[in-house]
Design a binder for these strands. Structure first.
Lengths: 342, 342
DNA sequence: TCAGGCGATAATAGCGCTACGATTTATTTG
DNA sequence: CAAATAAATCGTAGCGCTATTATCGCCTGA
């Protein structure tokens, strides 16, 4: 009348108990060794590491996370990793986090707050150690979801608005201002901003607005020509053609980023427009080609790398319990790279 | 004489039981609803969704994963997401996986097998639904770790060697061959391959080797000039200068990627070297600037996007139990974009 | 000699959820 | 109308690990 085993379950091949058994200690000791090796005697440590090696034991982070009510994951949501800016930040952050054995869970919002909201929900399901979002603008539901979480919430790549918790980045309107002031300093009076995808990209819009204001404040004329698609050199060339048709008097151009600026330079070369003599050009991004093109592109270099590192540092501090409450604002600034295009 | 509660534990604010209670059903039913909504009656479904909304319930994927012995995570390891090729694949994959509610865990190997091994170990700790690696070359320990896992192991961006499980990509030597044959077809006989970081980037090396062999097979001379750093336009310009010094007779150049090619075009422009008359140039990658530069760059376009989508499809099939064993090879091919630089 | 203290190890009770079988309820059929 | 079948729901036993408390030796010093 004996019953068969009621529940059969899938399982992990090698568990912590297996290691404990082989090392002749209790599972608790193995767990302790994994988390605080210094608290375990040398003898036990050795036996345990040997057993781990022999069995090729891989700890189960889900079990660990469940028991500890927190995980070794950090969720980062960016518009897209195809964008070199965010790729840089993601990359530097992952490098920094790896040292703390934290893993990056990546999500792409595609500049869509609805999408972001869904991704935040999914991210929270992992009980991450921190969550990183791009920008300061989020749906109401996203804010609600994040309002009461006990982990750091870090908003990157934008400063200058109400923030949820920490914010790391710079002021995009100041980028626009710097570009305008630079062109004015170079003696230009008929300025133009060439922008791509500005209906979606808030930060490009902020740069544009800063540019227009500063230009006008300095007594220069300032117009905008834009294109709805993602920035590319091709669109840059098209925008230049349109710009010169609509505003032939233009003598200084700022671009929403270096892809656009590169396209402008290509078009100028084809049409024998002298840069910077006839037209000064300034970009944004300092991408890999910006110093190498003809002429080398004056541009504003953001701090994508630093943003990622600072975010990782914040997370590390929080993890190590340095109570220094995370509600902070870190301005990573930007620098003007003056080259020959202006 | 009563004891205080022995164990106090941290916890999640809202659990499935809370939802069940509010909806007047058992936790099992809530779980079922979340996994297979169609198996739950309309009445119960409604009550449950309402409760979820009201409580703002977020399921705990770690608990779920632990119980189900599998997680909703897919681990992807690429050399770096700063590289536009991999960014493209990661991005398209993430988009495709999102529909299945799978999350991407990202790791950067930096072209280092040791690093990759560590990352694989960390990745396995999550009991992912699949694991995606770049290339076919891995450390012995990595192979051992992956030998017996029950999940799909997908190697991307390289074909033509022994694979662990599935492989999705193309043959890089064929890329080199196509480039050489193209230049020969254009009447070039003194060919050169310009490469960056080839000591680390196996796939660039394969393209180079294919190029040299095909060029020589076609009776053309073929040399190599390389630089140890990451590809960039600046390095492309430097390499061109060195190339013309060492091999002034060169009349056709293939580059390990479009960044290098762009630098070559920039340098040619500065030095008034006519492209393609004096020098034909072909790149690899078809990056965002390649069609827009002067002259538009002939290049070979890989299928980074497709690779990501195919990988996601494979994972989906496996998840839906379509036994179609995953050990497969999918050749995503590449296409030659003939433009004016050759 | 033995209480007191300390470092190292062990035992225990869940973390929140899913899978499985068992049970209940609704629906059909002989 | 009872029996058989199908549909919906529930109860239970862990998944593998961590945090907390309890225990075990061993050394010190009065």
């Amino acid at each position: 009348m004996r019953k068969p085993p009621r529940h059969r379950r899938k399982m992990q091949s090698v568990t912590m108990s297996d290691v404990a058994e082989l090392a002749n200690v209790s599972p608790s000791t193995v767990s302790l060794f994994l988390r605080k090796p210094e608290a375990v005697s040398a003898t036990a440590s050795q036996a345990i590491s040997r057993a781990i090696d022999k069995l090729n034991y891989v700890p189960n982070l889900m079990a660990g996370g469940l028991a500890a009510a927190s995980s070794r994951a950090v969720s980062i949501l960016v518009p897209s990793v195809r964008n070199a800016f965010f790729a840089e930040t993601v990359s530097s952050m992952q490098t920094a986090l790896k040292k703390q054995r934290l893993q990056l869970i990546l999500g792409h919002t595609e500049y869509d707050e609805q999408e972001e909201e869904e991704l935040v929900r999914m991210a929270l399901s992992w009980a991450p150690a921190a969550i990183v979002l791009t920008g300061l603008s989020h749906s109401a539901a996203t804010r609600r979801l994040l309002a009461n979480v006990a982990i750091p919430v870090i908003e990157i790549w934008e400063l200058g608005g109400p923030q949820i918790d920490a914010a790391i980045g710079f002021h995009h309107d100041q980028v626009g201002i710097a570009a305008a002031e630079h062109l004015v300093r170079q003696g230009r009076r008929n300025l133009l901003f060439l922008g791509a995808r500005m209906h979606q990209d808030r930060r490009a819009r902020q740069r544009c607005n800063g540019f227009l204001q500063a230009a006008r404040a300095a007594g220069a004329a300032a117009k905008v020509v834009e294109h709805p698609d993602t920035a590319s050199a091709e669109i840059g060339s098209m925008l230049l053609a349109e710009a010169l048709r609509l505003h032939p008097e233009t003598d200084g151009i700022a671009c929403s980023n270096d892809h656009i600026a590169l396209g402008v330079l290509f078009a100028c070369e084809r049409q024998k427009i002298a840069v910077p003599d006839r037209l000064a050009v300034i970009g944004f991004g300092d991408l890999s080609f910006s110093a190498a093109c003809n002429p080398p592109l004056t541009t504003i270099r953001p701090s994508g790398d630093l943003i990622g590192r600072e975010a990782a540092r914040l997370i590390e501090e929080h993890l190590h319990g340095e109570k220094a409450d995370t509600h902070r604002t870190i301005d990573t600034r930007f620098t003007l790279q003056h080259r020959r295009s202006s």
